[in-house]
């Protein structure tokens, strides 16, 4: 299987007044075409830096990011991004917000076709009838849905999600997870999701990468078998609980709160943590 996103030995440091601040150290992640990789890790471990590197907004000090085997040295129109802040433009209607990328990237589509494309996506995420509303008239979850549509409207090969569901309440978040699966069934894209939510990572991704503390490297990779369109019930099975426990333990190691052990075969959860993971 060819790897659409190939991050090889990326090392990066920010230049600060008190000297260089290393954030990434020899990080390697590969995502196959159509794949969905979630990246989890302790706070401030360089997850957002990773998204900026993939988007070509930054060039790493060492190592390289390749998309389709081509080295990324500048931003490219085959990438779509969604952030925790939906950053919709308040002066545009929802429809015009979604169309925005089509006004930037080179396209042969006519205005009517652009609108059709945007309307189809909006309908897919359940925003029919909201096309002519302003962002201020929508709830947080609806704005984030519109933001997802904007990230996908130009049919990007790569979708970068930087904690897009982080600021939403629990129920809205679970709704959006399912919306994400619907989008994946209808659209073709390869995705990298940055998240703090372990349940979210195993529900959405095919592979979960745990980053170590700063400077971050790929500490652990957990494959999640693809079961097609997933349902929320699958989060409450024994397999899911076991995966969550493994991830929790890996995060504790990354935070320096637990000693590395042979975790892949035998996660060492403290008593009662399985029950916590289920709630």
């Amino acid at each position: 299987m060819s790897h659409l996103i190939d991050i090889r030995g990326v090392t990066h440091a920010y230049r600060t007044e008190s000297g260089p601040l290393p954030v990434l150290d020899g990080l390697s992640i590969a995502v196959p075409e159509g794949g969905f990789t979630a990246v989890v890790g302790p706070s401030g471990c360089g997850k957002s830096t990773l998204t900026r590197l993939i988007a070509g907004l930054m060039i790493p000090d060492e190592g390289e990011v390749r998309l389709h085997g081509e080295r990324v040295t500048s931003p490219r129109s085959t990438v779509g991004m969604a952030f925790q802040n939906p950053v919709l433009l308040e002066w545009r209607t929802i429809l015009d917000n979604v169309i925005l990328p089509l006004e930037i990237v080179p396209t042969k589509l006519k205005r009517r076709e652009k609108e059709e494309r945007a309307r189809r996506l909006l309908s897919l995420v359940g925003l029919d009838g909201f096309e002519d509303k302003r962002p201020s008239e929508l709830s947080g979850g609806m704005r984030q849905r519109a933001s997802l549509c904007r990230a996908l409207v130009h049919k990007p090969e790569v979708l970068i999600l930087d904690e897009p569901f982080g600021a939403l309440d629990a129920f809205t978040r679970e709704d959006l997870w399912q919306t994400m699966h619907q989008l994946r069934a209808e659209e073709t894209f390869t995705s990298v999701l940055i998240t703090h939510d372990l349940r979210e990572s195993i529900f959405l991704a095919d592979e979960v990468v745990v980053l170590s503390g700063r400077p971050a490297t790929a500490q652990y990779k957990l494959p999640v078998p693809d079961t097609g369109l997933r349902t929320l019930d699958e989060l409450y099975t024994a397999e899911a609980a076991e995966r969550l426990n493994i991830l929790r333990h890996q995060i504790e190691i990354a935070q320096g709160r637990a000693e590395p052990t042979d975790t892949a075969s035998q996660p060492a959860p403290p008593p009662g943590s399985a029950a916590q993971a289920l709630t």
């Binding site: 988007a55 500048s74 129109s77 991004m81 433009l89 925005l100 930037i104 990237v105």
Partner: peptide, 20 residues
């Protein structure tokens, strides 16, 4: 983030000024 949305698509500074 407003800048990044357009910059990640390869928009020029002038486009970012007019659009955002």
């Amino acid at each position: 983030e407003y800048r990044d949305i357009l910059r990640s698509l390869g928009a020029s500074q002038a486009t970012i000024f007019w659009k955002i």
